[in-house]
Computed example of a mutant assay.
Amino acid sequence: MVLNLFKRNKLRKLTDKGIKLRKEGKYEESIRYYDEAIELDPKFKYAWLIREIVYLI
């Protein structure tokens, strides 16, 4: 339970940081944060989605 909470918090922080960087136009850096989130949880579809959006920009 605690591990799941830790994992969710870490995923949120990684994706939030990626989003912030994307909004600043730092696309390559933002992709690194999404990649890290995907590595932490390959089933985290949100990270896959927003990473692909950055690739399309």
Score class of each variant (00 low, 15 high):
5 L>M: 07
42 P>Q: 07
41 D>F: 15
10 K>C: 01
53 I>W: 14
50 I>A: 01
6 F>M: 09
32 R>K: 10
52 E>I: 11
3 L>F: 15
4 N>P: 05
38 I>T: 09
51 R>L: 02
14 L>E: 08
23 K>E: 13
27 Y>N: 06
32 R>V: 06
6 F>V: 04
3 L>R: 13
31 I>L: 10
29 E>Q: 08
32 R>E: 07
28 E>I: 04
35 D>V: 11
37 A>C: 06
21 L>C: 03
31 I>S: 02
56 L>R: 09
29 E>V: 03
54 V>T: 06
57 I>Y: 13
26 K>W: 12
47 A>R: 08
35 D>E: 14
42 P>I: 14
22 R>W: 15
48 W>N: 02
15 T>G: 08
41 D>E: 14
21 L>D: 01
10 K>P: 00
38 I>H: 13
10 K>Q: 12
37 A>M: 08
49 L>T: 11
17 K>T: 04
48 W>C: 05
40 L>N: 12
25 G>P: 13
23 K>W: 09
11 L>S: 07
22 R>G: 05
16 D>I: 11
25 G>H: 14
6 F>Q: 10
8 R>E: 08
56 L>A: 10
8 R>C: 01
28 E>W: 02
8 R>I: 01
56 L>V: 07
37 A>V: 02
22 R>N: 09
28 E>P: 00
32 R>P: 01
18 G>S: 06
5 L>E: 09
49 L>W: 07
8 R>F: 06
45 K>M: 05
18 G>P: 03
21 L>V: 02
9 N>A: 11
33 Y>D: 05
13 K>Y: 03
36 E>S: 07
3 L>G: 03
19 I>C: 12
37 A>H: 14
7 K>A: 02
54 V>P: 00
2 V>L: 08
7 K>Y: 07
4 N>I: 15
27 Y>H: 06
7 K>S: 02
54 V>Q: 00
